[in-house]
């Protein structure tokens, strides 16, 4: 029951935390570009404004896909806070991702179709990596459950450093940061206009932004699992990781999806294989 309560609290608080994280992200990005940047609560304003717009839809089933996307993101965050099975959380999150793509593929619009296909390739790129990371966690803790990680006396990061880097790839793709802002970028200057998001507007877009906030929190949550032994360590890890994400976002050009698929798969698989072999060998630091 307490776990259920945690889940509810997590689901309620996550968007607010997400607003702060994304707001901070935008300010820091601006700072890195020698600008001042928007107010901290800008993501909140954006969502509220979108919510207030007159509804316009491009396809009848779009709202269905959006609501399921949001719900999947919420459920996965809830399950994360309820310390459920990591693999299951990942699967539930994938439901959202798939409906997101389906929503984009519904409309006969060139940009959203191409965006949908690219989003699929992004999913294709990061899914195996996340499964491998989870397999690594399983090998180390003997379980896929989050509470098993909390039961550890040493941070996960020490024995899974390479898998953390692999997770970093997945993180960057999932957060749509350069060099992987391929299916939809945060700003318009992209060949696909806004890719998967092109055909959504108003309320639908607001819901998608909400789901993004949930996903951001989920991903940061997963990231925090790599240092569970002290709250400061966790905070430090999160701050450094996110800061690195923003810096990478600012020092990379956008790459093509072919490059992404090839290079991320090769590096990701090699890195995780090395780390997994290390874990199989039974060696532990």
């Amino acid at each position: 029951m307490t776990l259920f309560l945690y889940a509810i609290i997590g689901v309620i608080l996550a968007p607010f935390a997400g607003v702060l994280v994304v707001g901070l992200d935008r300010i820091l990005t601006a700072k890195f570009q020698s600008r001042i940047g928007p107010p901290l609560l800008q993501p909140l304003y954006d969502i509220c404004k979108l919510w207030g717009k007159k509804p316009m839809i491009a396809h009848r089933f779009q709202p269905l896909c959006v609501y399921i996307y949001l719900a999947a993101a919420m459920v996965s965050v809830g399950m994360f806070f309820a310390q459920s099975d990591l693999l299951l959380i990942f699967f539930v999150q994938a439901v959202g991702a798939i409906f997101f793509v389906i929503g984009a593929l519904l409309v006969p619009s060139p940009f959203s179709q191409a965006g949908g296909n690219r989003e699929l390739i992004q999913i294709l790129t990061y899914e195996p990596l996340i499964i491998l990371v989870l397999a690594g966690i399983y090998l180390y803790t003997g379980s896929f459950k989050i509470d098993a990680i909390y039961a550890l006396d040493k941070p996960l990061l020490i024995n899974l450093p390479l898998l953390f880097i692999v997770f970093g790839y997945a993180l960057t793709i999932k957060l749509k940061k350069s060099p992987f802002d391929i299916s939809a970028s945060h700003h318009a200057h992209q060949e696909l206009v806004r890719g998967v998001l092109t055909e959504y507007s108003g309320k639908m877009l607001a819901l998608i932004e909400m789901a993004h906030l949930y996903e951001t929190i989920l991903i940061l949550g997963l990231c925090s699992l790599f240092w569970t032994t002290s709250i400061w360590g966790m905070a430090l890890l999160l701050v450094i990781t996110y800061l690195l994400e923003i810096i990478i976002d600012n020092i990379c050009a956008r790459m093509s999806f072919r490059w992404m698929l090839k290079s991320v798969w090769t590096t990701g698989i090699v890195l995780s294989a090395i780390n997994l072999i290390w874990l199989y060998s039974g060696a532990r630091i």
């Binding site: 001042i36 940047g37 806004r194 998001l197 055909e199």
Partner: peptide
């Protein structure tokens, strides 16, 4: 830096 006012060049009329 008009992003100070929350302006984003979104490039898509629908948004």
């Amino acid at each position: 830096d008009v992003e100070r006012f929350g302006v984003l060049n979104i490039g898509n009329p629908k948004h």
